Computed example of a mutant assay.
Amino acid sequence: MKMTLIAGSNRKAATSTILLRYVESLLKAQSLSVTFVDLQELPLPFFTPDNQELHPNVQHLLDTVADADGLVLATPEYHGSVSGVLKNALDYISAGQVSGKSVLSVSSAGGPMGVSSLLHLQSIVRNLHGVNCPEWISIGYGSNSFGPDGAPLAGGMRGRIEGAVGNFVELTRMLAIGAAAAAK
């Protein structure tokens, strides 16, 4: 299975990106193919439907999303919503590229939790006809410290992340099996 992870912050050393790197390590430990798209390193022009020629960075994003069986989207929470950088990237993506694919939402907030950004992200995924994983990952103030291996240091957080990633992988498998059966 192929997974595409999109880090939706343009801040260097963003906790949402560090958290997503940990998710990446969990997926790779299961011998899954993982493509990591870091929007801080892959800047995209502002989306406009008028632009018919796609910037090479946009084309790379679209190709990796289309090629994936599952997506993991990570965002910092800004003013109760997703980052503008991630929203801009998602505006380029069409429903045909996400339809029927599992999506795990991940957030890091400066306050207690990033629930508002996760709700907004899941609404966007529904509008793209993706299948939201019933779990999400949210870390907030006090739980955003990471060890040298990138794993969260907060008690219980590591187990909750591993559980959510495990359920996401299982959902992705089930949807891939269903899609393969429907194609026959």
Rank of each mutant, 00 (worst) to 15 (best):
L32K: 12
T35H: 10
D69Y: 03
H79C: 03
V58H: 02
T48E: 08
E41A: 14
N51M: 09
Q40L: 11
F46I: 15
K87Y: 11
V72D: 07
V85H: 03
V23F: 05
F36L: 14
K101T: 09
L32V: 03
K28V: 10
R21K: 15
V37P: 01
A95Y: 04
L54E: 08
L62M: 11
L73Y: 06
V82E: 00
L61H: 01
S25F: 08
V65D: 00
S25V: 10
P49I: 08
L71M: 11
D91S: 12
F46M: 15
K28D: 03
N51D: 10
T64F: 00
P56F: 04
P49C: 08
G96Q: 11
V98A: 03
L32W: 01
V85G: 02
V72W: 07
L39T: 06
A95R: 07
F47G: 07
L62S: 06
S25W: 09
Q59P: 01
F47V: 08
D63K: 05
P43V: 05
V98I: 13
L39W: 05
G70E: 01
L86V: 10
V34I: 08
T48F: 04
G100A: 14
T75S: 15
N88E: 08
K87I: 07
D69P: 06
V98P: 02
F46S: 12
G96L: 01
N51V: 12
V85C: 03
V82F: 05
G100R: 12
N57E: 06
A89E: 06
P76K: 04
P43D: 07
E41Q: 15
G100N: 13
S99Y: 00
S81R: 09
S81N: 13
A68W: 01
T48W: 09
V34H: 05
V82I: 15
I93A: 03
Y22Q: 05
G70H: 01
L42M: 15
V72R: 09
L42W: 03
N57A: 10
L54R: 08
Q30N: 11
Q30R: 15
T75D: 04
D63N: 11
P76H: 05
A95E: 09
G96Y: 05
E41H: 13
